[in-house]
Simulated assay, not measured.
Amino acid sequence: MTSPRTGESIDTIYWIEGDYIRDAVREISLFMRDWRTNDVHNIDLRTIDIMAAAHNLMDVNEPYMLLSGYRSPKTNAMLRSRSSGVARNSLHLQGEAADLRLNSRSVGQMFRAASACRGGGVGKYSGSNFVHMDCGPVRTWGG
């Protein structure tokens, strides 16, 4: 993954033969922190799994561009004041969601891959060129 906000990137193996690698998961959570406040929250392993599974289905080498991972309450409130599309109780607040982009795949392709995983919620934001993936109830939205 890369972050357009911080310029950071991460390429890590977080799971081997049925076991999560604790240090790698910690590194992913640090990477997916709220870049506005620098607050770190554990990212739900199910969200990481959905992201990885969708990425594998698309058969790409390009890393995701992470637009938003964990969001602090302060950041979520600020975003809600600017957009009606930000949920009051967003799963980003619990480290259970990510907003992602790939230059080599369309929003529709990413949406279909993530939806095929049937692991949580998938939102298509074509106008903003990103896909939301979360480990909440299985559902889809967007146009």
Rank of each mutant, 00 (worst) to 15 (best):
M1H: 06
P4S: 01
R5S: 15
R5K: 04
G7V: 00
S9H: 08
D11L: 04
D11R: 05
D11A: 10
D11Y: 02
T12V: 05
Y14R: 04
W15L: 12
E17W: 10
G18E: 08
G18F: 02
I21T: 14
I21N: 07
R22G: 06
R22Y: 05
V25P: 06
V25H: 11
R26P: 05
R26K: 10
I28Y: 13
S29A: 09
M32H: 02
D34F: 08
D34S: 03
D34Q: 01
D34W: 02
R36N: 09
R36K: 03
N38L: 14
V40Q: 04
H41C: 09
N42P: 11
I43V: 13
I43F: 09
D44W: 06
D44Y: 04
L45C: 08
I48A: 04
I48V: 15
D49T: 03
D49G: 11
I50P: 09
M51C: 14
A52H: 13
A54L: 03
A54H: 12
H55Q: 06
H55R: 10
N56Q: 15
D59I: 09
V60N: 14
L66V: 13
L66S: 06
L67V: 05
S68A: 12
S68P: 02
R71Q: 11
R71S: 01
R71I: 03
P73S: 08
K74Q: 10
T75M: 06
T75W: 02
M78W: 14
L79I: 04
R80D: 09
R80V: 00
S81R: 06
S83T: 10
G85W: 10
A87Y: 11
A87P: 07
A87D: 07
R88A: 09
N89S: 07
S90N: 08
S90M: 04
H92K: 09
Q94L: 12
Q94C: 06
G95V: 01
E96T: 00
E96M: 06
A97C: 00
A97G: 08
N103T: 04
N103L: 02
R105L: 00
R105T: 13
S106G: 12
V107M: 12
V107K: 01
G108Y: 14
Q109D: 10
Q109R: 05
M110A: 11
R112L: 07
A113Y: 04
A113P: 05
A114G: 11
A114H: 13
S115M: 07
S115Q: 12
A116T: 11
C117Q: 12
R118D: 08
R118P: 04
R118F: 12
G119I: 03
G121A: 06
V122L: 00
V122N: 00
V122I: 10
K124W: 02
S126Q: 08
S126C: 07
G127N: 03
S128L: 10
F130T: 13
V131I: 01
H132F: 13
M133D: 07
C135E: 07
P137M: 03
T140F: 00
T140R: 01
W141N: 00
G142I: 00
